[in-house]
């Protein structure tokens, strides 16, 4: 080379980039996506496609035409938001509602705060809640269409958590089993298989894309709170296993609460954040009017992140 480069140190860089991190998250979502498509069929594929494509396109358009800074477009991050949004919707959601969700997630929740890294709330979760309050009927219609794989005991009508009102706490507890761990029809599409979600989470932790503390803290809090209430009155309150396996808890704890932008930076901050989510989830489930509260809990805790970051810092060298 004729002229050489000069820059401050360091002169080498790790292979990890924003896009490679997002690629890893997409890879981690693959097992859960595959299971949901197998069980729900074409309808689920349509939702995934509409959500992912519209999220990427909307972000690209806003960056290019509204902010006029094409350099900051991150297709990977938009794709992750799109996939997570799709996984947080029931399979019966009409495509136009998915589209509205995508516009809200990217346009309002993410880009209006300045785009990548600037948003306060998790875009996919905020969009899901927005759709839930705007279209309560469509968003709680859990009728499952025929998928590519026939299910031995397919049922429709209510989610596992919805069963609590029908069967009572004891009856619902009985539903938590090996089967619900493998697949669990009813509810949002991405919630279908705890096993697939956990496999993706383990992949992310092993690849050091995310740290495990937030997720573990949520699981621990939910288990402990449920254990205490269940011990007090098993007929009124469902037990730890049921609460861990049902609803959006695993999806939320593994993929939504661990979103970089909207979670605390430090390990202990993450533990506190996870505790807050777990506690709020259980309070909403036990005492709230909605059967499920993972989304609300994550959104509420998103707001506390700046405070948590202020209070919790990593251990510094040579300082008490």
């Amino acid at each position: 080379m004729d002229k050489h480069i000069v820059s401050p140190n360091p002169h080498i860089h790790s292979a990890v980039s924003t896009e490679s991190l997002m690629r890893d998250v997409v890879i981690a979502l693959v097992p859960a996506i595959v299971v949901s498509v197998l069980f729900y069929g074409w309808a689920e594929l349509l939702i995934l496609a509409v959500s992912a494509v519209s999220c990427v396109l909307i972000e690209w358009a806003i960056v290019k035409f509204l902010l006029k800074r094409p350099g900051i477009f991150s297709p990977g991050a938009a794709l992750v938001t799109g996939l997570l949004l799709a996984m947080n919707l029931p399979v019966s959601t009409p495509w136009w509602i998915v589209l509205i969700g995508a516009v809200f997630a990217i346009g309002v929740v993410k880009m209006s705060f300045g785009g990548l890294g600037q948003n306060v709330f998790n875009p996919a979760i905020a969009a899901r809640v927005f759709l839930l309050v705007s279209f309560p009927q469509q968003m709680t219609n859990w009728t499952a269409p025929q998928g590519f794989v026939a299910l031995p005991d397919a049922f429709s009508g209510a989610t596992l958590l919805g069963q609590v009102h029908i069967l009572g706490a004891e009856g619902a507890d009985a539903l938590a089993s090996v089967q619900t761990f493998l697949y669990n029809i009813g509810g949002s599409a991405g919630e279908i298989s705890a096993l697939a979600l956990l496999a993706g989470w383990v992949y992310l932790v092993v690849r050091k894309v995310i740290r495990p503390w937030i997720t573990l803290s949520i699981f621990a809090t939910v288990a402990i709170v449920a254990a205490i209430f269940h011990a007090v009155d098993p007929t009124a309150y469902t037990g730890p296993l049921f609460n861990l396996l049902s609803g959006g808890l695993i999806l939320g704890a593994c993929f939504m609460a661990t979103d970089y932008v909207t979670s605390p930076m430090s390990n202990w901050g993450g533990v506190v954040f996870g505790f807050g989510i777990g506690f709020l989830v259980m309070m909403i489930r036990y005492f709230g009017s909605y059967p499920e509260g993972v989304s609300f809990a994550i959104l509420l805790m998103n707001m506390t992140v700046p405070l948590i970051d202020r209070a919790f810092h990593g251990k510094k060298y040579g300082r008490a």
Binding site: I5, S7, H11, I12, H13, V16, S17, T18, L21, G71, I72, S74, A77, G115, L116, G117, Q118, R211, Y260, V261, S263, M265, S266
Partner: peptide, 15 residues
């Protein structure tokens, strides 16, 4: 090996 990549936004990954 050495050229710096284009600067983008902090995604708060904490790395």
């Amino acid at each position: 090996a050495t050229k710096r990549g284009e600067e983008s936004f902090c995604i708060r990954c904490g790395r």
